[in-house]
Write a protein that binds this DNA or RNA. Sequence first.
DNA 1: TATAAGCTTAGAGTTGGCTCTAAGGTCAAC
DNA 2: GTTGACCTTAGAGCCAACTCTAAGCTTATA
Lengths: 144, 144
Amino acid sequence: MLKISELSAQTGLSAHTLRFYEKHGLINASTRSEAGYRFYSEADVRRVEFVKTARNSGFSLEDIAQLLSIRVDKQSHSCQDVTDITQKKLDQVNAKIEELQSIQQTLEILLESCCGGPENASHCSIMEALDEGLTRDQARSESQ
Amino acid sequence: MLKISELSAQTGLSAHTLRFYEKHGLINASTRSEAGYRFYSEADVRRVEFVKTARNSGFSLEDIAQLLSIRVDKQSHSCQDVTDITQKKLDQVNAKIEELQSIQQTLEILLESCCGGPENASHCSIMEALDEGLTRDQARSESQ
DNA sequence: TATAAGCTTAGAGTTGGCTCTAAGGTCAAC
DNA sequence: GTTGACCTTAGAGCCAACTCTAAGCTTATA
Ligand SMILES: [Zn+2]
Ligand SMILES: [Zn+2]
Ligand SMILES: [Zn+2]
Ligand SMILES: [Zn+2]
């Protein structure tokens, strides 16, 4: 049986975070001391590790709540239930990556167009591109 | 001179958002009617469009505040000032992309390992992988 | 027995970028 | 002159996932 600080040390999650997860129904201490101190069993620890792993895999706490409800009763759920959650998360991640890659490209084009030098910015093509709304080819070279 | 709803229609930013940007020092209506209604000049509109373009390029409102202070006095700033902001943002975007790609990979490996079928999840290798902490090769195939 | 470390709770604060509400003043049309 | 659309403000609420605070109780060590 571990106290919260011991569980914290073992998992790398802060005691605050562990209480926060409990408040949101993700984890629990299966026993309490007379004074109300939380005590975590081996099974409790495994559940916390599950949550931590799922979080590191990109799942939201809401996703994790669903995964946990499958975990406690695997018989009543199918592999498809699990892949549905996972695929949905992957779709979100892919969408976000695409969005960021579009921004990445824009920033790279902007950077390529600017000399980056110490002279004053009245000729700066990044500023011009932002002024002109980066339609079309966004920014032409500053040179000449 | 445009009223706020007209500027909203022209830029696609809500009147709420325009007031929000004003409260945060990004934009301003250069004149007000006697009753206090905001009126935007051509120059005001161009500034708002600059903000919008910068936002679409991935800059935070704080970045944009810096870019705007360069914009109003280009003589006192260098191209390097502009690229510093842009490069820093690109670095952040790249870091975020890498983080998401790592998650993407994890999710893909998980999905590959699971049959996704209608049978019950007691043999599900996604659940197993999350239980085991996805160390090493994370998840082996469910088959056999 | 006294000090300090650790535990408890409810609840507030953080971040960023909106988004909305309430309560009221203004303005154009009918 | 009255409806209804539009404008004003300060300030609250939202999202996720923490992060921290305050005030008080418990436990271990000296
Ligand atoms: Zn230059
Ligand atoms: Zn430049
Ligand atoms: Zn299966
Ligand atoms: Zn499976």
